[in-house]
Structures are given as C-alpha cells and as structure tokens.
Design a protein around this nucleic acid. Structure first.
Lengths: 117, 117
DNA sequence: CGGGATCCCCATTGATACTG
DNA sequence: CAGTATCAATGGGGATCCCG
C-alpha cells in the first residue's frame, strides 16, 4: 500500500459518494417508483404497479423493500377490507426530489440531443 | 417541497424522461467513469481502468463505447508509441456535472443518515 | 389486496488469453 | 497500450401460482 497523492483522495471520496447514491438508486425501477409515490404523495402497491409500466409484482415488492431499508419510503398497512398498503416518502426520501427533477430535465434534453426534436 | 398532483399525462412524461436518463447512466460503472474523466479533464483508457476500482477492461471498453454513442464523451487516438487513447467529456457530457455533484452530495448525506457520522 | 415462493431463461459480467 | 475474443458462471428478473 503506497501513499496516494493527496489530490486524488478527494476524488476517490467523491467517487465513493456517487457510488453510494447509485447503489441506492440502482435498478431500472427505483427512480420511477419514487417518482410515482412523490407525485401522488401517498400511493398503494397496486397503484404503483400500474404507474410503473412493465414492472412485475415481484420486482416492485423487492424494490420497495430496499427503498424502505434505505429509509427513503415509509410503509403503512391500512386496516381496510381487504387490507391495503400505503407508501409515502420520508423526509429523507424527499431530499431526492431535486435530483429527480434534474434527471427529468436532463432526460428531455438528452432525448432531443440524440433523436432531434 | 410538495408533490402536488396535476395531470397524469404530465407525470407519465416525467417518468419517461427520468427513465431516459437512467437508461443512459445505467450500470454501476458509467457514473464513475464520467466522474473520472470529468475530474482529470482528459484521461487515457488505462488511467480510467485504475480510477474505477474493480472494473475489467472488457467492461470499461463496453461502457465507453456506449457513452460515446450517447455523445457524452469524445474518443481521440493519439499518435504515440505505442498508441494511447484519450477520452474527454463532450459539451453534452459536461451538462451531467450538476447531476453528478448533486449525487455526490446526496451520497454523503445518505451515508451519514444510514450509518451515522 | 399485497406480496411470498418457485421455476427458469438469457443477458450481464468476470477471467483469461490474444492481437494490432 | 487499447482493446477483442471466447468460455463459463451467476443472478436479475419475468411468469405463474399461492397464501393471509
């Protein structure tokens, strides 16, 4: 183990931080799921299943679980008949809103850039 | 800070846009690769290979090709002995800088949130 | 309704070796 | 140095069924 140049340390830290974010948001569904919940404030399992086109219930279940572990969403079981489950963003999850907004804007710009308008 | 419902079409467009972004940035390596190139301005293949811990040359080659197709990076073959190849961000690629900065900051905040400081 | 369990396919990725 | 080629393994994720 040799000593790395000091200026590189900063960059390595940044790379690790970005990596941490991407690990949390990994998978092609998570951002869409968050976007869905955020848009409607509170959203039920089957509603999200409809919002996120193409996702299977197994995937949704798995992704929601991971998001909950990372404290981005809160899961609430409602005592209805039959039971429904409500998902909403935590305060921490809401801090992703800026990023999602940027990603939305960039996605539009990128699409125009690649495919023309 | 609220996510108020407007019209569903609006939301579907946003979801598609976010999805477009994530498709371009998918894989666990792309953001790190971009971050590396961005940090050093210009970067050679083997340098990136060292920056991005754990990536194989096959993966790096593939990811770089995809980034180039999406016009995020520019590839330049230098007439050295032996040849070296330089990668740099395009203007379009540079527009990702804001997002990467946000992801970096959020990653740090998230890490503190989950694991404490 | 919300989600767990199982089966199974094929795309992604790693390791290794090779080339211009 | 900057990739390509090939083989092999793994696991992501879809389809389906099931259960409280």
């Amino acid at each position: 183990m040799t000593c790395q140049p000091r200026q590189n340390d900063e960059h390595k830290k940044e790379m690790r931080a970005v990596q941490d974010s991407m690990d949390v948001l990994n998978g092609k569904w998570k951002i869409s799921i968050i976007s869905s919940i955020c848009y409607y404030n509170k959203r039920r399992f089957s509603d999200i299943l409809n919002d996120v086109v193409g996702i299977s219930n197994k995937m949704l279940s798995k992704e929601l679980k991971e998001l909950e572990i990372n404290q981005l969403i809160k899961r609430t079981v409602l005592d209805t008949q039959p039971i429904t489950v409500q998902y909403e963003l935590t305060d921490h999850g809401l801090t992703l809103k800026t990023i999602i907004q940027h990603l939305t804007d960039w996605g539009i710009a990128h699409h125009e850039k690649i495919f023309g308008k």
